[in-house]
Every structure is written in C-alpha cells, then in structure tokens.
C-alpha cells in the first residue's frame, strides 16, 4: 500500500469571511488527485459544515485530512465548550447559534446532520469544557 496523503489546516476562530478556506483547499487538492466529483462534493460539504461549526461554537480549531487508497478521513479538533447533548445536536433543526449567525444563513441546525449524511462514518468525541473531536470517513473503495 502506498503512503497516505495528509493535509493539515488551522481554522481561524473569529473569521467568517475566511471560513471555508480549508475545505476549499481540500476540494482543490482532491480534484488534483483526480477523485470523482461526487466524492469531492461529499468531503467538501462535510468538512465545510465542520469548519463553520468550529467558527460558530469553538473559536476555531484544526482540521486534518488523510487520503488513502481506501478512504478519505477528516479529523476536526477544537478546544471549544463541548456538545452537551449529542443526540439532540444530531437532530435536524436543533441549533444553539445566535441570531447574528442565523442572519448569515447559518444556524439552521443542519450542520451535524449534513456531516453524517455525506460521510460513511462519523464519530463524535466531546467533553464539556474541554473540546470536541469529530472523525469522519468517506470510503473510496
């Protein structure tokens, strides 16, 4: 098996304008690797939703993307407040975002559900007051 490709990004916490830079760069990288557009789209959207979540709720974080022959893995890590009730957060329409976030078109309570929708597996590790790590995989095989 050949070596995995790894990309690392820092997600700026207080900047909505630059939010999406990491996912846009990943989209570009995956395109250069010649991956199918439908796969690129799923990875890009899942990662963008995660990036936006880190900006809204956690003052930023890091994103690591690993591309192997079998799958693409995205690990999003933040030192935010943690998710009090994951089951509730996974429900479409549930959101704790503020009105100012909503006025930007976010905060519809679809972020985590979209991340699950577009990936083959998603694992959430969260500790209140410590942070959240989300690991998602999109299978290539």
């Amino acid at each position: 098996m050949s070596d995995a490709l790894v990309f690392h990004f820092d997600v700026d916490g207080d900047n909505f304008t630059s939010a999406g830079q990491a996912s846009t760069q990943v989209k570009r990288n995956l395109r250069q690797l010649g991956l199918p557009p439908a796969i690129i789209r799923r990875v890009s959207i899942a990662m963008y939703e995660g990036e936006i979540n880190m900006v809204i709720h956690a003052d930023g974080g890091t994103a690591d993307v690993m591309v192997t022959e079998e799958y693409i893995e995205i690990i999003l890590k933040d030192q935010g407040p943690g998710i009090a009730n994951v089951e509730q957060a996974m429900q479409e329409g549930f959101s704790t975002a503020t009105d100012s976030i909503r006025s930007l078109g976010f905060g519809a309570g679809m972020g985590l559900p979209n991340m699950k929708r577009y990936t083959d597996s998603m694992e959430i590790n969260t500790v209140l007051g410590v942070g959240t790590t989300i690991t998602m995989r999109v299978n290539l095989a």
Binding site: F16, T17, A19, G20, S23, T24, K27, P37, A38, R41, S44, I45, Y48, E49, I52, L104, G105, F106, A108, G109, M110, G111, P113, N114, R117
Partner: peptide
C-alpha cells in the same frame, strides 16, 4: 446555507437572495 448543502444536487441552479461571502463558498463546495 446548510439546507442548500444538504438538499441541492450537483449542477442545480441555486436561487437565493443571500449575498454574503459564504454563498460563494457553498456554491463552490
């Protein structure tokens, strides 16, 4: 925006009245 990302299909025309920078990111992704 998350509804668009969750429901719009690839190659759709996306009709909106939103005009902030995130619209461009969502359309691209």
């Amino acid at each position: 925006l998350s509804w668009v990302m969750g429901r719009a299909q690839m190659d759709n025309a996306w009709i909106t009245i939103m005009t902030n920078v995130n619209v461009i990111a969502v359309a691209s992704l």
